[in-house]
Design a protein around this nucleic acid. Sequence first.
RNA 1: GACCCCGUAGCUCAAUCGGAUAGAGCGCCAGCCUUCUAAGCUGGAUGUUGUCGGUUCAAGUCCGACCGGGGUCGCCA
Length: 670
Amino acid sequence: MYLEITTRFRDALAKHIRAKYHLELPIVLERPPKIEMGEAASPVCFELAKRLKRAPRQIAQEIQNALPPVPGVAKLEVAGAGYLNAYFDRGAFWEAAQTEAKSGDRKDSQNRLSHKIIVEHTSINPNKAAHIGHVRNAVLGDTMARTLRQAGRNVQVQNYIDNTGVQVADVVIGFLHMEKRTPVSVKMMAMEPRFDYYCWDLYAKTTQFLAENKEQAAKLRGDTLKAIEEGRGEEAEVGQVVADAIVTCHLRTMARLGIFYQLLARESEILHLHFWDLAFAKLKETGTIQFVTSGKMAGCWVMPWKEEKSGVNAESADIKNAEGTEEEENTQDKIIVRSNGTVTYVGKDIAYQLWKFGLLGKDFHYSKWPKAPEGEDVWSTTSGENDPHAPPFGAPAKTVYNVIDARQAYLQDVVAQGLRGLGHAEAAENSIHLSYEIVALTPRCAAEMGYELSPEEAKKPYVEVSGRKGLGVKADDLIDQLEAAALGEVQQRHAEMTPEEQKSTAHAIAVGALRFFLLKFTRNAIIAFDFKDALSFEGETGPYCQYAVVRIRGIRRKGVEAGAARVAVTPETAQKFLAGTEGNGLWEVLLAAGSLDYAVDAAIVAQEPAFVAKYAFQLAQAFNNFYHKHHILSEADEQKRAFLLGLTELVEAQLVRALNLMGIDAPEKM
RNA sequence: GACCCCGUAGCUCAAUCGGAUAGAGCGCCAGCCUUCUAAGCUGGAUGUUGUCGGUUCAAGUCCGACCGGGGUCGCCA
């Protein structure tokens, strides 16, 4: 609602200014600091004042008088030094909010049919258990996908499986060379439920082993990786077993958090179905990558790193080059193909990106992933038979979101540069690196985990999680802890529930706490993880928001029990309760409830899922405030009771929807 | 060294293209449960937005310099 009205207001202003003053200005709208000042304000007259060389207040006055009425806006006022403040028609807003809440999704579902959006997230190396940092990735991606869908977009979620990378190779080395196991025995182990935990430890051990045997390590890694890439020998067999089993573990972990995927895009298929060969040929043809014959990169194919050339800088950069600093060269160049012929992740990612945009002229084969954790439809790429019932995954995407942590910004730039080198500047532009900062541990938390801190680490604000060192909070452990803590609370509060109800309620609370915790930080805030904060159910948390919904449901239940008759609330009646200073408190709740579309839009424009969390919290807060001021069911005035009840249900609908965008369910009771 | 990110209340973080009096949560203090769930609410204290300069009607936000912290620059991803 809020977005609709402000959009109309903005358009009306733009149109008016264009017609009257012949100026094309971007119309900035903001939320006035106080509700008494209206619901939307524009400082556009300050800009106009500069252009027209007249006083801003005077221009504001003029526009106030001449602007044609905007539906939903009751009046316009000049405020401060020249702000134009819009006051909404509260009765009309009430009416519209009612229908919006009932109809559910936004009307602009034509987007659904137009272009396809791919959100790629999670993409954990399939060689160990998922940790808290991986969960941040998945939660951000999942929330972004849900938010885009809420706005009517056609979204497909993919999880990239790097099953032919160095990390898998390391665990294969661990099994075959350190533990001296046979493929059969690894296969047996892979059926154990905690196989990912086993690999977590094995990976740390292998890394240590390889670090201690440097000369042996390089050859071992190279040979193993090559065998895995080419799909031959015990190495490839074990690699496949490990990767598939770990992926199954990851899917199970993420399913606990309500996170699912449409397609698992496996790197092995990029190789086996010759996606890479094709991309490689194109990269060579266009000269995007070059073969190095001397120096330390001899025998590799590299992509020369260009300094950014945009606008004015291009000139100076060229001059610098012309002056001949050429000699130092190549330190930034990125190796795409190693001297032993294996491809780096970046190379494979270029091929993958090309496919996403439909620029490769090839498609994968697809088959259903056999072990979907909840029996849902998950597809996987395969180099075997193509299942004709597979959805059209190969349809080109218009926009692609790649959820990848901030440390990989350089690599993402290389991928984009590769696309541009192949003449796909538009694809590079529409390939969005949804970057986010890492989850680290506070030194205290790391110490609690039994990690020995070096003196300088102890002084730092946080310690980086490291799969190679085996340092990190495993996702399943954390969810277990959250569920246990929530269950304790639920058992205390709701002895009347069956154990199953208690468990599922505790689960919803645990998921709410965790997902909200990871979403309340903006993307480029480093989260210094601490159990105390993450396990909190009070204040700015998921359970706080869930609790507001639970309260509303309690009111509804009690209302039905009491058999209170519901009278209809007309816009005029609503207007009466919302008017004036006394009505402001109620109006703020209604306005908050009607602003979901605005929050969703902001989250998409800014690519910032945290906005959704912020919105949900503020709405819950507004409701709790309202809840303590007004006792709804004991309200004597029949009209007012019906109005308050209607407002409450409106908050419920919108809050449930907002929580849903974050993958958080509100239980009936908690 | 080059490039990128960050620096806001005791702590953790917000602040919509540059907009009106910089906001939340936690923690602390004082209150509120025979009435719809206290995982809640109310009130109180805490700020030279790292420093200096510049641009602007308007700067936490943009520009420059400096200080402090983090990251990237691997034949790892």
